[in-house]
């Protein structure tokens, strides 16, 4: 058989982007807000989320999806320390979640009794930023020990996030971390990004973050 050349001219992300948009519309109609949380490994995602869930669990019915390449450590931590409905998603070796995997997680979690679904993405600053999961809002956690130059090195993740939590501010005196510089660099990538300096361990700065999330969830569900 003769091969013929067929012009495709399509971004490799087009298929996932369309799928993500469908999931977003579905969640909107079902009244479930999906928060996609991204960061490097060890930035304090799980600690931040445990505290956030416990602070908001009287206001919203919360579900959490823990995505990891392997293990159920985070899912166990969540179910031992919060009342949130928890499921574990294994990415089967992949370094990120796409819209299709997120939909499978959402289906398992169920939206009927969940107002706020949180997706704890795989710890990685590169790949999760490229794949739209269908989330209502994207949030990133950057911790002080990682350094203030990250917006320069990993521009895309700062571009796609609506809020940036700067965690572990309690150890600032021990690191050469410049809060003004990180703010400047992050705004260079994304002028609209909201920045919240926090310490998930002590609770410092968390109220402003809760307030932002609360407002976003209410707006989405209204």
């Amino acid at each position: 058989m003769d091969m013929k050349i067929i012009e495709v001219k399509q971004s490799i992300f087009a298929d996932n982007d369309a799928d993500a948009e469908r999931l977003r519309q579905q969640l909107k109609s079902e009244g479930t807000f999906l928060l996609n949380v991204m960061s490097s490994p060890g930035s304090g995602k799980t600690t931040t989320l445990v505290r956030t869930i416990n602070a908001l669990s009287d206001e919203f019915r919360i579900g959490i999806m823990e995505a990891d390449i392997d293990s159920d450590v985070d899912a166990r931590t969540m179910s031992e320390n919060t009342k949130a409905k928890t499921i574990q998603i294994h990415t089967g070796g992949m370094c990120h979640l796409d819209a299709d995997m997120t939909r499978q997680g959402i289906t398992e979690l169920g939206t009927a009794d969940v107002d706020l679904a949180i997706l704890e993405n795989v710890g990685n600053l590169v790949c999760p930023a490229e794949f739209d999961t269908g989330a209502s809002k994207n949030v990133m956690i950057l911790s002080v020990p990682e350094g203030h130059d990250k917006p320069l090195k990993y521009p895309l993740i700062f571009k796609v996030c609506d809020a940036l939590l700067i965690n572990k501010i309690d150890v600032m005196p021990y690191f050469d971390f410049d809060m003004d510089k990180v703010t400047e660099y992050a705004h260079m990538r994304n002028p609209d990004i909201k920045i919240f300096p926090i310490c998930a361990k002590t609770g410092e700065g968390m109220d402003a973050w809760y307030e932002w999330l609360r407002t976003e969830v209410k707006e989405w569900r209204s």
Binding site: M3, K4, I6, V8, K9, S11, I12
Partner: peptide, 12 residues
């Protein structure tokens, strides 16, 4: 410079 597109395929 950040894009990745499928340009074309040869197929039958």
């Amino acid at each position: 410079g950040s894009e990745c597109n499928i340009k074309e395929i040869e197929a039958c």
